[in-house]
Design a protein around this nucleic acid. Structure first.
Length: 198
DNA sequence: AGCACGATTAACT
DNA sequence: GTTAATCGTGCTC
């Protein structure tokens, strides 16, 4: 197995669909209290620009969405449903609002810590959803705008194993968006991964 | 100032 | 399959 390498700014400063697909198989790493919490990315979604009615940037540049307009490779972490946090990575050139939502991980390292943070044991359900993985990796508002590409960042992404088979589906939970956005095949996952969301 | 709703989850029937 | 939980955000008055 090749040594893991941190993804750099140039990886993220590309078309969002490319980044969303290529992130599959890579490893999200969270350094916390001296412990590595890590998981292989098995599911992502792309949110692209102000035209995309499912994207938060549909409302333009606001206090909340400012992060999406910033440079690629930063974290966009937001709060929703009164209780959940979601983790995205910013993509494309600065000034263009786009991001990839990380929706599910295959837990690799620090599993017992993840089980404590989640309050459950079943490994297949530790990170099998966007709010589950932020809970398992202790990611919330303080992590918003973190730069994945800085050497001293407690959050980054490494190269991983090359995925076998990738499938694309419509995005989840965006039913209020109109067409064509509702039907865009902008969700990517590893086929038959037991670690993807339901 | 008030309101409707959300890139979800877990626990129900 | 259905639903409560729970609050920040953006929009309207």
């Amino acid at each position: 197995m090749k040594p893991a390498v941190r993804l750099t700014r140039t990886f993220f400063t590309r078309p969002t669909l490319t980044v969303a697909r290529e992130l599959l198989g890579c490893v999200l790493v969270r350094q916390r209290e001296g412990v590595r919490l890590a998981g292989r990315i098995v599911e992502t979604e792309a949110y692209i620009g102000e035209e995309d009615e499912a994207c938060h940037a549909r409302a333009g540049r606001t206090r909340r969405t400012a992060t999406m307009y910033g440079p690629a490779g930063h974290a966009y972490v937001y709060f929703t449903y009164g209780m959940h946090w979601m983790l995205n990575v910013i993509t494309e050139e600065e000034g263009f609002p786009a991001a990839v939502l990380l929706r599910a991980l295959e837990p690799l390292e620090g599993i017992s810590v993840m089980q404590d943070l989640r309050g459950r044991k079943a490994v297949a359900q530790l990170c099998s959803g966007p709010a589950k993985l932020t809970q398992a990796l202790a990611i919330a508002r303080p992590e918003n705008e973190l730069d994945f590409c800085r050497k001293d960042s407690p959050l980054w992404i490494e190269t991983g194993s090359h995925p076998n088979r990738i499938i694309a589906t419509p995005r989840i939970g965006i039913s209020s968006a109109g067409e064509p956005w509702l039907s865009k095949l902008w969700r990517f996952l590893l086929q038959e991964s037991p670690f993807a969301s339901r």
